[in-house]
Simulated scan of single mutants.
Amino acid sequence: MIRTDGYMNDLGRILVKDYPWGRLSGRDVLVTGASGMVGSVLTDVLVSKASEYDFQVVAMSRGMDGLKQAFPERSEHLRLVSHDVNKPVGDIVCDTVFHCASNTHPRAYSLDPIGTIETNVIGLKNLLDMASDAGDGRFVFASSVEIYGENRGDVDAFDESYCGYIDCSSVRSGYNESKRVGEALCQAYGSQKDLDFVIPRLSRIYGPSVRPDDSKAMTQFLFKAVSGQDIVLKSKGTQLFSYCYVMDAVDAMLHLFFNGESKNAYNVSGKDSDVTLLSLAKRVSEIAGVDVVFDMPDEVESRGYSKATKAVLDISKIRSTGWEPSYSLDEGLMRTIDDLSSMISNQVRC
């Protein structure tokens, strides 16, 4: 990924925060899914602090090519590891873990439903075993708004105690249910092995580190916009969701790593970022100067779509710890479109 000036400025807004980075001194910090949208930004932040505070960052992903593309500049404090978390970790030993690896978009859910479940359960177990044996670090499991399922119509926003409806007979439910099992697995390790962990439940994330093969609606809107094409909406757009700019998501994960109460889950969402899908499409189209058109999804893609019609997160709990989102939806969209446009321009010139 090309680090634009806008991206580096956003990264700097996290780096200047007064987190107790010294707690990481001497540790090996593992980031799984390190070439993904959230994991790559998180890795960039950690590597930027690793030299000053003398710790190592282990960036793990299934493919070395993706890692080298995500991190073209080497640092003596960064180790790239190609490994499938669904296999035993072998000689990898890290007591501090940010588990961000997961299938996170509709086409992946429908084409690889087994792998989706395995990463959120078997892969997680492999890492929990490693971390619980390695020492006294902290484990961060990146969970999702998807664990709430369908709003039963009894609340306007989900707090951390809410439990909605999931149709477990659908292929799509593999993601939701496995994230739920993953959270339960963390609780089991916390109870039986006294593992220190915290769980950020992320809303729908977007930002300049998004991958082109991501089939989420927001991502498709953004790539259509930066290429000057009309935005394609594959439903009536009445779904009401919470969104979060990737820099806020990463900042929240770090805040919870340093400040979150052990064995707790926290909702994470952006500022003024609850919006219908149609309104979102219109905002992106207005920023990019394109139109919105409607087109129904094909059968494969539709199997991976969420059935939720209202999934808004209440972030009162994380706010009580002192964290606040920094980016409004409009600001995040403009920054993402600017950065993606700059990246595409640089790639064309190269």
Rank of each mutant, 00 (worst) to 15 (best):
M1L: 11
K17M: 03
P20G: 01
L24P: 03
G26S: 05
V31E: 06
M37S: 12
V38Y: 12
S40N: 11
D44V: 01
D44F: 04
V45T: 04
S48M: 00
F55A: 06
F55G: 08
M60E: 05
A70H: 07
L78S: 13
L80D: 08
V81T: 11
V89R: 02
V89G: 00
V97H: 12
H99N: 12
A101L: 11
A108Y: 09
Y109T: 01
T116I: 00
E118H: 14
N120Q: 07
N126W: 09
A131D: 05
D136K: 15
F139M: 02
V140N: 00
A142I: 13
I147W: 10
E150V: 10
D156H: 09
A157T: 10
D159R: 10
S161A: 15
Y162S: 14
Y162M: 11
Y165W: 15
S169T: 11
S169C: 05
V171K: 04
R172D: 01
S173G: 07
N176C: 10
K179P: 06
R180E: 09
G182S: 07
A184E: 13
L185I: 14
Q187L: 14
Q187Y: 04
G190D: 10
G190R: 05
D194Y: 09
V198W: 04
K216R: 15
M218W: 05
T219I: 14
F221N: 03
F223H: 06
A225D: 05
A225E: 02
V226M: 03
S227G: 13
S227E: 15
G228P: 02
L233T: 02
K234I: 02
K234A: 06
K236V: 05
S242A: 05
S242K: 07
C244Q: 08
Y245D: 10
V246Y: 05
A249S: 13
V250T: 15
A252R: 09
H255D: 08
H255G: 15
N259Y: 12
G260T: 04
E261P: 00
N267W: 07
S269T: 15
K271T: 06
L277P: 03
L277T: 07
K282E: 15
R283G: 05
I287R: 02
V292F: 05
P297I: 04
V300T: 15
E301T: 14
E301I: 03
G304E: 07
G304T: 05
A311S: 15
D314P: 08
I318R: 11
Y327N: 05
S328A: 06
L329C: 02
T336G: 04
D338H: 14
D339C: 14
S342G: 00
Q347H: 11
R349G: 04
